[in-house]
């Protein structure tokens, strides 16, 4: 335990916080510790987690992407028209089209960042505005409701009736989320290019010197983010059963907060899939718990903000030694 705390301090911290929050919540609310609620929680975080693991890869590579949520909306529209052109499509084609379109939007970011040596926050704030402006302009802000049936029909992967009569259900987005988590985990842990993304984010100049393919690193990182944005968009449309052009705007900052809370560093080289998922989960548990406790929804965000601020303050104060280590490294 002590060793895990040493090697993965942030993940351990989050886990402790989640357990503490769960204990408190289950003491106050009988519903909290039920399978129904647990599955609800999993279903509700799935889209954010899909975005989050994509963003994680970009953060590890030393970049940042502000544009992904808007890109997801763009993909929704493009995919809708592409699929009707293809005659309706099905889930397989849907995933390929949405993922592919997402990768293309990600590649635009990567290309601008790599070939023109522009820092990622500038590029993605610019593309955020371009994507959003063009989307709203071309769609005139009109939502789409006549999605193909396969897209909007709920798919329940696992269900069980509880003693209380309510149903515990696990839906498609949850399964896709587990897929996204495993794929990202495999990418950054077991593939050569994944480790190169870590190395590049950690020390770009050192990475260049040992011959890491910088172009590949950038395109794969932003392409991965784009793919996850596309798939997240597909899932969000499935979940909502409609496509609204500005439905996802603002989501980028919430996801960013959760991922960074999970230990990914702005600046690169740090972050784990586990931490990232725990970050999203913690934020969701707080909201879910407040909901069960009967707190007015208007106060949710205020309380989440306070907790986030406290978590940042506390985690940074107690990990000060780490920072001294970083300072030493810069004096190397």
């Amino acid at each position: 335990m002590a060793r895990i705390f040493k090697t993965h301090p942030i993940e351990t911290w989050l886990l402790v916080l989640i357990i503490v929050a769960s204990v408190i919540l289950s003491a106050f609310s009988e519903q909290y510790l039920t399978l129904v609620n647990a599955f609800d929680l999993v279903n509700s975080i799935s889209i954010n987690v899909i975005f989050a693991v994509g963003l994680l890869v970009v953060l590890i590579s030393g970049g940042i992407d502000i544009s992904f949520a808007v890109a997801a909306s763009v993909v929704q529209y493009l995919a809708f028209y592409a699929l009707s052109y293809l005659g309706g499509g099905n889930w397989l084609i849907g995933f390929i089209v949405a993922g592919g379109l997402g990768i293309m939007l990600g590649a635009i970011n990567a290309g601008l960042i790599h070939y023109f040596r522009v820092i990622s926050i500038v590029v993605t704030i610019a593309t955020f505005n371009v994507f959003f402006g063009l989307l709203m302009f071309l769609t005139k802000g009109v939502s789409l409701y006549d999605l193909p049936d396969w897209w909007t029909n709920r798919i329940i992967v696992f269900e069980r009736e509880m003693a209380s009569g309510s149903w515990a259900e696990l839906t498609l987005p949850a399964v896709v989320m587990f897929g996204a988590i495993s794929a990202t985990w495999f990418l950054i842990t077991y593939t050569s290019i994944g480790r190169q993304i870590y190395a590049f984010g950690d020390n770009p100049e050192g990475a260049r010197r040992i011959g890491i393919n910088v172009v590949a690193v950038q395109f794969i990182a932003y392409g991965w983010m784009g793919m996850m944005a596309g798939i997240g968009g597909l899932m969000q449309a499935h979940f909502m059963q409609e496509i609204v052009p500005n439905a996802l705007i603002g989501r980028e900052l919430d996801v960013l907060a959760a991922v960074v809370l999970g230990g990914a560093a702005l600046g690169g080289g740090r972050g784990t899939v586990l931490g990232c998922v725990l970050g999203v989960l913690l934020m969701a548990i707080i909201q879910n718990g407040l909901n069960l406790l009967g707190v007015t929804p208007f106060a949710f965000k205020a309380i989440v903000g306070v907790i986030l601020l406290l978590a940042i303050t506390l985690s940074n104060v107690s990990f000060n030694e780490l920072r001294v280590g970083l300072r030493m490294e810069s004096t190397q």
């Binding site: 960013l256 960074v260 949710f300 965000k301 989440v304 903000g305 986030l308 601020l309 940042i312």
Partner: peptide
């Protein structure tokens, strides 16, 4: 705390919006 300003101000944003 030397926490990253993006993160700190983001929490402040969520807090302000919430309040």
């Amino acid at each position: 705390t030397k926490a990253h300003p993006i993160l700190v101000s983001l929490s402040m944003m969520i807090l302000m919006r919430g309040i």
